[in-house]
């Protein structure tokens, strides 16, 4: 079977690639586009290590066909930091020591960002349920939750200050 030609945007840049019809987005990101920040933990949508944004939706890239992203925009971990500045979520995870082995961390960063865009000040319970699809075997989740609570407060405060007249 001949390969499919797909045009999409990845982290704001236009990208074209060829893929097999059955090939997953995760596979294309990692093996064709060399974006290995997105991790493979299960390929069955259970662990969340491969979380990416597809337009404004958080998806498991292992369950998304690469061909599905034609004309769409894909956001991966590599596009989260702004130039030489870490995103506040990345900074908060570091300061709270919210990662141990770190292999689940890229998925968390993407998932947390999606959460705070929808719900800027989530409760602890909302955070825990939103992140229930992202497995972490090292931390017991405690420091991740604290980091999210902390960064949500910080970002809300920064937004408020930005909104107020100088």
């Amino acid at each position: 079977m001949s390969k499919m030609h797909v045009s999409a945007s990845v982290n704001g840049e236009p990208v074209e690639f060829l893929c097999e019809p059955q090939q997953s987005l995760l596979n294309v990101l990692r093996d064709e586009l060399n974006l290995t920040g997105t991790k493979e933990g299960c390929t069955t949508g259970d662990c969340g290590a491969c979380s990416v944004m597809l337009d404004d939706r958080l998806v498991c890239s292992c369950l998304t066909l690469a061909a599905e992203v034609q004309g769409k925009s894909v956001g991966t971990i590599e596009g989260v930091a702004n130039g030489d500045t870490l995103h506040p979520i990345q900074q908060a995870l570091l300061e709270h020591a919210a990662l141990q082995c770190g292999v689940c961390t890229p998925g968390y960063v993407v998932a947390i960002k999606a959460l705070l865009e929808k719900n800027p000040l989530p409760s602890e319970s909302e955070i825990r349920y939103w992140l229930a699809g992202n497995l972490c075997r090292c931390t017991g989740y405690d420091k991740i939750i604290t980091a999210v609570q902390d960064v949500a407060q910080q970002m809300a405060k920064a937004d408020k200050n930005a909104g107020e007249p100088a």
Binding site: T38, I77, A81, Q90, L93, T105, P106
Partner: peptide, 11 residues
């Protein structure tokens, strides 16, 4: 490790 730059076994 928070930016996806760290290289793990499959990377």
């Amino acid at each position: 490790k928070v930016t996806g730059r760290a290289n793990y076994g499959a990377d």
